[in-house]
Design a protein around this nucleic acid. Structure first.
Length: 516
RNA sequence: GGCGGUGUAGCUCAGCGGUAGAGCAGGGGAAUCAUAAUCCCUUGGUCGGCGGUUCAAAUCCGUCCACCGCUACCA
């Protein structure tokens, strides 16, 4: 039996402590583009995002706000759910760790780890700095204070522990056997080095606060953050129900994460799962951070970029394009308005937008506003069509490596080839000398634009749809199954009046007037 | 301190043993279908420094300098 084409991918669950900013939007955007790509490529996709709502910080924030924790998290979680329509995410589910389905999954995972002998009762002790909300090892203290200078106090409580120390070799073997598990490569090296240096057991329960999932058979304990948070990926698949989504989608194909939480996803999580006798996810990709005009985004600088700011200024699809095109996915990079405007005007308006506009306008005027009839194809025609037809294989390979920027780069090579072809063929000149040849050239171009629009859908769903509308491509012919000659435009199909899809960005204000 | 990475044109980066590359920015030209968009040509680098291996080194080795990441229980 052939393996079903299914794909399960997840964003991290976002901690309900701050408002969503561009960092959150970026992670989910990458997942969204990939989810859309896979759907168009014939996969049954499950795309999950959600919020992480437990922990002492949340309980305290609720207390400070004078409401119970659930009311507080309902409120803050909503900000993240609102991000989906704003950014046009196509997530299939939104998990909240305060949901009953999640508690059930966590407790079942715990029970299995415990039944297999990997959880034991012990004592957790350390120097706790209230100000930093962090524990420090004896060796880290400087003059009896935290390295940060904060006062510390001795903290000791009875906790459950996970025997992580026993998983060093199994994890190293796992990485070795699954070279695709962790990307990019530099992160993989870091994690292998970390695990190689030895692992300590992990305390996985707390009794000092209550806002969490109770430990099975010992409810004075609640599960401590990561075992709770990570399990969301399984609870949303219906675990422990063996039928339904769990059977169809686990193990997950991809956990997309920021580089700050890579250890939890690539060390703790596979260890937990193996300890429970379950299969770890297939891949974790850790992406980088954006700086804002050269500066790190931080609370103290109060310079967070919000998705709403950018979209209001530049439009949704250009923002989506910029974020995925501007920097090699996985690396850190800098956001600047100058770079944003350059991408909009160069890649979108001048290259792709103008290509569509110049071709469609000529078809509209010189071909009775219908898909033109192609005659015999020349070598140049074949070359351009071959480039269009060949895009999918290349773009698919890049998506499978989460190299979104390279996928877009490959698409833009065809944009460039098409613009050169327009100049070489000069259909406006053929109009007088050889109208049939003009029609053929414009047909070849329309076909090329159809391919470009189809393949741009994951990144720019709305703009691509408009472009396909201009080519009168029916809804049913917009998956990747329609790529290639079999889905080619039919001569004679009436086309709507062309309109610009990617306008140039012109800065408002007096400064923008210069140079007219 | 330990481990790892990076340093190539003004900017962002590719190349990783065989006569220095791309995109953007800068300069010149062609064309005029198009969102003054497009196309062609072009300026620009002793590939961080020094030393070594080799017929041949951004490309391998050593060393130095600079910057960055990781070095566990805040998500």
């Amino acid at each position: 039996m052939a393996a079903a084409k299914r794909y399960y991918l997840t964003t991290p669950i976002y901690y309900v402590n701050d408002a969503p900013h561009i960092g959150h939007a970026y992670t989910s955007l990458a997942c969204d583009a990939l989810a859309r790509f896979k759907r168009l490529d014939g996969f049954e996709v499950k795309f999950l995002t959600g919020t992480d709502e437990h922990g002492q910080k949340v309980a305290k924030a609720a207390e400070a706000a004078g409401v119970d924790p659930q009311t507080h998290t309902d409120r803050v979680s909503q900000h993240f759910r609102d991000l989906s329509p704003v950014m046009n995410y196509s997530n299939d589910d939104f998990i909240r760790t305060t949901e009953p389905r999640h508690a059930r999954a966590c407790q079942e995972l715990w029970k299995r780890m415990k039944a297999n002998g990997h959880i034991y009762l012990g004592r957790f002790a350390g120097w706790y700095a209230v100000r930093d909300e962090a524990f420090y090892d004896e060796s880290e203290l400087v003059d009896g204070k935290a390295p940060t200078g904060a006062e510390v106090e001795w903290f000791e409580e009875e906790n459950y522990f996970f025997d992580l120390s026993k998983w060093q070799q199994p994890l190293l073997d796992f990485y070795e056997a699954n070279p695709r598990f962790l990307a990019p490569r530099t992160r993989r090296n870091e994690i292998v080095s970390f695990v190689s240096s030895g692992l300590r057991d992990l305390s996985i329960s707390r009794t000092s606060f209550k806002w969490g999932v109770p430990v099975p058979d010992d409810p004075k304990h609640i599960m401590y953050v990561w075992i709770d948070a990570l399990t969301n990926y399984m609870s949303a698949a219906g675990f422990p129900e063996e039928s339904g989504d769990y059977a169809r989608f686990w193990p997950a194909d991809l956990h997309m994460v920021g580089k700050d939480i890579i250890r939890f996803h690539t060390v703790y999580w596979p260890a937990f799962l193996m300890a429970a006798g379950l299969t770890p996810p297939k891949r974790v990709f850790a992406h980088g951070w954006w700086t804002n005009e050269g500066q790190k985004m931080s609370k103290s600088l109060n310079n967070f970029i919000t998705p709403q700011d950018l979209i209001g200024r530049y439009g949704l699809d250009p923002v989506r394009y910029f974020l995925l095109r501007e920097l090699p996915f996985g690396q850190d990079g800098n956001f600047s308005h100058q770079a944003m405007i350059r991408r909009i005007n160069t890649d979108l308006a001048n290259d792709l937008g103008n290509l569509a506009q110049r071709v469609l306008t000529q078809i509209n005027r010189n071909c009775e506003a219908k898909v033109p009839q192609a005659g015999a194809l020349t070598e140049a025609d074949d070359r351009l069509l071959a480039a269009a037809h060949g895009m999918l294989a290349r773009v698919r390979a890049e998506y499978d490596e989460q190299q979104f920027h390279r996928a877009l780069e490959a698409e833009w090579e065809v944009v460039g080839a098409a613009n050169r072809y327009v100049d070489e063929q000069a259909p406006w000149a053929l109009k007088k000398t050889d109208p049939a040849r003009m029609a053929t050239a414009l047909y070849v171009l329309a076909e090329t634009i159809r391919h470009l629009a189809l393949l741009a859908q994951p990144v720019m769903p709305q703009s691509s749809a408009r472009m396909l509308d201009l080519l009168a491509v029916p809804e049913v012919a917009r998956s990747f199954a329609a790529l290639g000659p079999s889905g080619a435009l039919k001569a004679g199909t009436p086309l709507p009046k062309p309109e610009g899809i990617f306008p140039r960005h012109v800065e408002d204000g007096p400064a923008a007037k210069a140079g007219g």
